[in-house]
């Protein structure tokens, strides 16, 4: 029975993108086919499962945009902030201030985007709220970035602000 299933699915297996996986699983089935009769009934129920499973995993879940290129950028930004944050506080100047403004806004934007995707799932809250939340996030991020750069140019800047607040002793 299982062998028949395999033979029937053979063309599909050849055509499938996950050839290796499927062939592996079908070879497991052939081994199972030789198992004693009392174990046969599990082979009857399992073939369809193990033949379908790899196809399921092959589906791309579109939670957000293609993340394979974004991820290294996120990590590079995070690594740069390990140096940037102390530097901007230790030696306040307009360059560090603006770099910190851009870096932290992008960093928190990606972070909150992940929060929205994780907690405001369409299946739970409907299709509209996640879109609204993401739109609001873009608005907040853009406003904050504009405000911080304005602050760095027209006011004392982020680094000096932190130092000045920390200088207050009583």
């Amino acid at each position: 029975m299982a062998l028949a299933l395999i033979l029937r699915n053979a063309p599909k297996i050849q055509a499938g993108a996950f050839q290796q996986n499927l062939i592996k699983s079908s070879s497991i089935l052939m081994v199972r086919d030789l198992a004693p009769a009392h174990k046969q009934h599990s082979t009857l129920s399992k073939p369809s499962h193990s033949l379908i499973a790899p196809q399921k995993f092959s589906q791309v879940r579109l939670m957000s945009a293609d993340h394979s290129k974004l991820w290294p950028m996120e990590k590079a930004l995070s690594v740069s902030m390990i140096a940037l944050v102390p530097a901007a506080i230790a030696m306040p100047n307009i360059v560090f201030d603006n770099l910190l403004a851009v870096a932290s806004v992008i960093h928190f934007h990606w972070g909150l985007e992940a929060v929205v995707v994780d907690y405001a799932r369409p299946i739970v809250v409907g299709n509209i709220l996640p879109k609204l939340a993401l739109g609001l996030l873009y608005l907040i991020s853009a406003t904050t970035l504009g405000g911080l750069i304005y602050f760095n140019i027209n006011d004392i800047g982020i680094g000096k602000t932190i130092r000045k607040f920390w200088a207050i002793k009583e």
Partner: peptide
């Protein structure tokens, strides 16, 4: 903690736009 830091950043950024005086006044 990331969200708390985000809150600081947003307060400073939007505060710079909304508040009438320089941050030094408030400090």
């Amino acid at each position: 903690t990331g969200m708390i830091l985000t809150f600081y950043t947003i307060v400073l950024g939007t505060g710079a736009i909304i508040l009438p005086d320089s941050i030094e006044t408030y400090l």
